[in-house]
C-alpha cells in the first residue's frame, strides 16, 4: 500500500511535466491543425540555455528565466521564419518540416554541448517522498494552466487568438492580424514547452533526454484530445500515474509500450480523445 502511494505521488509529479508538454502541443494544434514534433527540440534548446546561464551565473532561477525566455523567442521565430512559408503549401510538408527541425536542433545541441550527459539540478530538494521539487512541478504547471485559461478567457489577446484559431477568416474580417496571433501562439506554446523541459530534465540532460518525455507528452495530448487544453492537463496527470504504476509493477522498459496500449484503447472508444466534443464533418 505504501508503495502504491509512493508510485501515485511520483506519477503526479512526473505527470505535471507531461501535462505541460501536452499543453504546448495542444495550443499549436488548436491554432494550426499541426502537431509540432519539434516541440521537444525547442524545449531542449531552452533547457541547455538554462544550463549555460546557470553555469555562468551560478543562479538556478536566472537559468529558469532564461529557459522560458528562450522558449518564447525560439517558438515565435520558428513559426514566423520556418513554418509559415511551408504551411501554405501542404499540411504534410509542414509536419515533415517540424520533424526536420527536431533533427536539426537535436543534432545542433549535440554539436554545441556534446552528446554526453550533463548534471542538471532540480529547482528544490528532491529528497524524500513528495519532495519540494515534486510540489513545485505540480504548482508550476497548475499556475501556468490557470494563467493560460485567464489569458484565453479574459484578455483581448486571448479573444483574438481564439478567433484566429477557430475561424481565421472571421478573425481577419474583425481586424485581427491572424499571422501575428499564430506567432504569439507558438511563442506561448514553446514557453510552456520550456517549462516542461525544466521540470523533466533533471537530474541529467543529454540531446535525447526528452524522447521518452515527448512520447508521454504526445500520449497525454492525444488521450486528452488534441483540441482541448483541459484534456491535455488531465491527460498528462493520468499518463503520469499510469506510467508510474507500469514502471513500478511491470518494469520501466514497458512504460512506452503501455502508453501505446492506453492510446489505442482510449482512441478506439473515443477517436478524438476523452474530452472531445463530437463534431460533424465539415464540408
Amino acid at each position: 500500500m505504501n508503495y502504491f502511494v509512493t508510485l501515485t505521488l511520483n506519477g503526479l509529479a512526473s505527470g505535471a511535466a507531461y501535462a505541460a508538454l501536452a499543453l504546448s502541443l495542444v495550443i499549436i494544434y488548436q491554432a494550426t491543425r499541426l502537431v509540432n514534433f519539434a516541440q521537444p527540440a525547442l524545449a531542449l534548446l531552452s533547457v541547455y540555455t538554462a544550463y549555460t546561464v546557470t553555469q555562468l551565473t551560478g543562479s538556478y532561477w536566472l537559468g529558469f528565466a532564461a529557459a522560458l525566455t528562450a522558449g518564447l523567442l525560439v517558438g515565435a521565430f520558428v513559426e514566423r521564419v520556418i513554418i509559415r512559408p511551408i504551411a501554405r503549401t501542404s499540411q504534410l510538408n509542414a509536419i515533415i518540416v517540424t520533424l526536420g527541425l527536431l533533427l536539426v536542433v537535436q543534432g545542433g545541441v549535440g554539436m554545441v554541448w556534446g552528446n554526453e550527459q550533463h548534471g542538471f539540478r532540480y529547482a528544490f530538494s528532491y529528497v524524500g517522498r513528495f519532495a519540494p521539487s515534486d510540489v513545485f512541478a505540480l504548482v508550476a504547471v497548475g499556475v501556468v494552466a490557470l494563467l493560460l485559461f485567464a489569458l484565453y478567457r479574459f484578455t483581448p489577446l486571448g479573444l483574438r487568438m481564439r478567433a484566429a484559431a477557430f475561424h481565421p477568416e472571421a478573425a481577419r474580417l474583425s481586424g485581427v492580424r491572424v499571422g501575428l496571433m499564430l506567432t504569439a501562439g507558438w511563442g506561448i506554446a514553446s514557453l510552456i514547452g520550456a517549462l516542461a523541459g525544466m521540470l523533466a530534465g533533471p537530474p541529467f540532460i543529454s540531446p535525447n533526454v526528452f524522447d521518452v518525455v515527448f512520447v508521454f507528452g504526445i500520449t497525454a495530448a492525444v488521450v486528452g484530445g488534441l483540441d482541448n487544453p483541459f484534456g491535455a492537463v488531465i491527460g498528462g496527470l493520468l499518463i503520469g500515474l499510469g506510467m508510474s504504476y507500469v514502471s513500478g509493477f511491470l518494469g520501466p522498459e514497458l512504460a512506452t509500450l503501455a502508453a501505446l496500449v492506453i492510446v489505442v484503447a482510449v482512441l478506439s472508444v473515443r477517436p478524438d480523445g476523452i474530452l472531445s466534443r463530437p463534431t460533424a464533418r465539415k464540408v
Partner: peptide
Amino acid sequence: PYLAGATLILAVGL
C-alpha cells in the same frame, strides 16, 4: 495526427 502519435509511440517503445 492520432495515428501519427500512436505509431510514434510504437517506434520509441519497441
